[in-house]
Simulated scan of single mutants.
Amino acid sequence: MSAYPVAVITLAVATLCFATDQTADGLTLNLRKRPAAPEKGATAATEKKVNWNPKNTAIVVCDMWDHHWCKSAELRVGELGGPMNEMLKAARAKGVFVIHAPSTCTDFYKDTPQRKRARIAPFAKTPVPLATAERWGTAWNWPDGTREAVLPVDDSDMGCDCKVKCEIRAPWTRQTAAIDIADGDAITDNGQETWNLLTERGIENVILCGVHLNMCVLGRPFAIRALVKQGKTVALMRDMTDTMYNPSHPPGVSHFEGTDKVVEHVERYWCPSFASTDLTGKPAFAFKADSRAKK
């Protein structure tokens, strides 16, 4: 007969079962989406709880640069960087693969193992051809009139909401230092390299976060439109994003209400969204200047 007390054995079994259950739980996400109904106006959201295998899941961090041509946008990225870093720590702890995508800045990281990891990933053919249209020197996935309406905010002025409009330029040099790049992460701003990394790891679920939702997070070659068209299961982390929207332009709502409208557009036409709470167990992030109730 075992020399171990029954209570100790029971506790050990219970602990083992708990650990197994936690692993089996994976990523429990509350995905919110809206029907892509033809009628105009808001559509009611529905939520569905799903369970994703962390090992089959990646997070892409889009264009969280060190600087931005719009000072207001740069300040918001600075505010978002710390909470996003904490979220990424929680995601990695669960086994999620993290891809940093600071567009046009990957040369800053050219000698790092994270950048090399993306460059040497075996080539994998995409199900549909990658976008070839050029914008700011990179392939771009433009709005698709066959499946989405026009964006609900007018960003024709490029969305700077500063009192004195900023000069449009490209001051970014790297990803913000507020976000750690861990040993097992990858760095790329290339659609093919992103596809290679996902294929190499058998990743089917991709989460997008970063800036700016009405522009880069939708249009970049590694972002929402591209990945949905390639057949991946995509979700937006809606509290870990921002928009380039000037409230003096239609629809004339606050900056943060404008962001919510673009989130609803994504939920309606491209992919569901969820809040970082599902990964961190903490309240969703909200910008300090957003005077509304917390998301």
Rank of each mutant, 00 (worst) to 15 (best):
N190K: 03
N190H: 08
G191S: 13
E193I: 00
T194F: 12
W195Y: 11
N196L: 01
L198Y: 08
L198S: 00
T199F: 00
G202A: 06
I203K: 02
E204W: 05
N205M: 06
L208N: 05
C209K: 01
G210E: 04
V211T: 15
V211S: 15
V211E: 08
M215L: 14
C216I: 11
L218K: 01
G219D: 12
R220L: 13
R220G: 15
I224N: 01
I224T: 01
R225P: 01
R225Q: 09
A226T: 13
V228R: 00
V228K: 03
V228W: 07
K229A: 13
K229C: 00
Q230H: 08
K232G: 03
A235N: 04
A235W: 02
L236G: 02
R238K: 15
P247Q: 08
P247L: 10
H249G: 11
P250Q: 15
P250M: 12
G252L: 11
H255A: 13
H255C: 12
F256D: 10
E257R: 15
G258H: 03
D260T: 14
V262N: 00
E264C: 06
E264R: 15
E264V: 02
H265V: 09
H265F: 12
V266N: 05
E267S: 11
R268W: 05
R268V: 07
W270Y: 06
P272W: 02
F274I: 08
F274A: 01
A275C: 14
S276T: 04
S276P: 13
S276E: 11
T277R: 10
T277C: 01
G281D: 00
K282L: 07
P283H: 06
F285L: 02
F285S: 05
A286H: 14
K288I: 15
A289K: 15
A289T: 14
